[in-house]
Each structure stands twice: as C-alpha cells, then as structure tokens.
C-alpha cells in the first residue's frame, strides 16, 4: 500500500511537488502520467525516500517513511530507473542480481536460490555480461534485480522508454505478472496505450499538482483534461468518445469490433 498526505517538495526554493495526496490499495496498479517536467520522477523518488518532502507524509505498507532509512524502505519497495545503465555494474547478470540481495542482508544460500529462480522466470542468461545486452534486455536485468528482492511495492520510472514494441510487451508482461502476485505498482509512463492496457488506475500530474486521479478508462475520455496535462488519449478510447460510446464500453479493438457488430446487427434487424 502507498499513501501520500499533502506532500510538497521544493528544490532551491522552487516548488516541484505541491500538496499531492493519494492512496493505492495493496495490489493496485496505477499509471502516473503528465508532461515533461510535471514532477513525476520526483514524486516517485519522494515515495522511495530518496527525496524528503518539505511538508506532508508518505506511508508505505502502513508505515510512515519519515525518519526511515532508504535501505529500510528498499526492503519493501523497489525502484526501476528509466535508464538501467545508472545501476548496472556487475560483470555478469548473475552477479548483478546477487549484489542487490547482499545489500539487503539476505543469506547467500537463499540469495542463490532467488537469483536462479528469477533468471529462469524472466528468461535471462545469468552468465552474459550486462553491457553486451540490448537496451531492452538491460532494462529487464534491472527489473530482475527488483524481482529477486520480492518487494511489496514497485515504483517504475518509464520502464518502456527506448524499447521496441516486442521488448516493451515483454517488459510489461513481467510487470503485470508481479502485479498479479500481489505487488502494488506505480508506473510513470508517456505511453498512453501501455497505461490503458496495463494500469487500471491513473494519476495525472501537472506542474507538480495532482490534477486528477481515478480509473484510467474514465480519465482517458476527458480529452480536455489530458490536453492540459500535455497528454493525448489512447486511440481507441478517443475513437469511442467521438462515436458517442459510453466510457469503458469499448476501449480496445475487440470490444469496439463487438460494438460495431451489434450496431450493424441492430440496424439490419430493423431493416428486415
């Protein structure tokens, strides 16, 4: 669970985050969206304890993080950085994963078991050198590092930026699996299709303020709101809106096809 109460944050007297409050229940999956410079990454770092809020409080798993060391927060929450190269240094993928576990004080026997399990699960070759992998694979190594630690909360900063479509889908399937196993996920993204497909909830940030929060499929319909936040709706949602279909009724290709089929059938029926 993640809970923020009236969180504000300043950097050299310039407000970056202004009075943000929200609550994510255990097992929730939310997308944090907004334009460049809206404060999304900063907010994620505040939750991780990397930045301390000037005002307000952050609760992780029911516990206030004020005064908690980042290493203590790291036992509950994992953070995936936008650029995996900022954290990868191990000579092999295996060594990279083991390092993260050693830092948390997990016994070497248990660590070995977890590392091997994670490698198998995410389809990674533990003996490869991380720097010889593609950007998408390195991003998955970084995710594997989080996965091995089994955090209850995952904070993801643009996990699919710079990846091609296949890598993006692989990445998101891993994330979705972790979510199904109970992890609470807050993910910063610019990709509205990814947000719609994977994150049922959405938080919209603009100029450091929480502009809106709610169900992704509802917020996605508010074109004017998205425009103000430098965003654009996912294609099928935008199309549904223009066709006057009720929110949530036809948000993907399948359901919109069904809707068209139903309309054609109804029309054909009255004609007959």
């Amino acid at each position: 669970m993640i809970r923020l109460e009236n969180v504000s944050f300043e950097l050299s007297n310039r407000p970056i985050i202004n009075d943000v409050g929200f609550r994510l229940e255990p097992g929730a999956f939310a997308a944090l969206v907004g334009g460049n410079g809206a404060g999304k990454s900063t907010l994620l770092k505040i939750i991780m304890g990397l930045y301390r809020p000037a005002r307000g409080a952050v609760y992780i798993d029911g516990e206030a993080t004020r005064g908690m060391r980042v290493s203590a927060i790291a036992k509950k929450a994992g953070f995936l950085f936008q650029n995996p190269d900022r954290q990868i240094f191990g000579a092999t993928v295996r060594a990279e994963l083991a390092f993260g576990l050693a830092e948390l004080g997990i016994s070497s026997e248990e660590a070995r078991r977890r590392v091997e399990g994670t490698l198998e699960r995410l389809g990674l070759d533990g003996s490869r050198a991380p720097m010889s992998l593609s950007r998408g694979e390195r991003q998955r190594v970084a995710l594997a590092g989080l996965f091995a630690r089994r955090p209850k909360i995952l904070l993801l900063d643009e996990p699919t930026t710079g990846l091609d479509y296949r890598e993006c889908m692989q990445m998101m399937r891993c994330v979705a699996e972790l979510n199904e196993e109970g992890a609470t996920i807050l993910m910063v993204t610019h990709d509205m299709e990814v947000a719609l497909d994977f994150a049922p909830r959405m938080l919209i940030l603009a100029d450091g303020q929480l502009m809106a929060q709610g169900l992704t499929r509802d917020l996605m319909r508010d074109a004017e709101l998205l425009e103000r936040a430098s965003l654009m709706p996912a294609q099928i949602v935008a199309l549904s809106a223009r066709l006057g279909i009720a929110p949530g009724e036809a948000d993907d290709v399948d359901s919109l096809t069904d809707w068209i089929a139903a309309r054609r059938a109804a029309k054909g029926g009255t004609a007959r």
Partner: peptide
Amino acid sequence: IEAQTARGVE
C-alpha cells in the same frame, strides 16, 4: 547514487 541507494546500498 540514487539508483544504488534505492537498491538498499547504504
């Protein structure tokens, strides 16, 4: 530093 701190490095 942030990336490593977030992994629990003190």
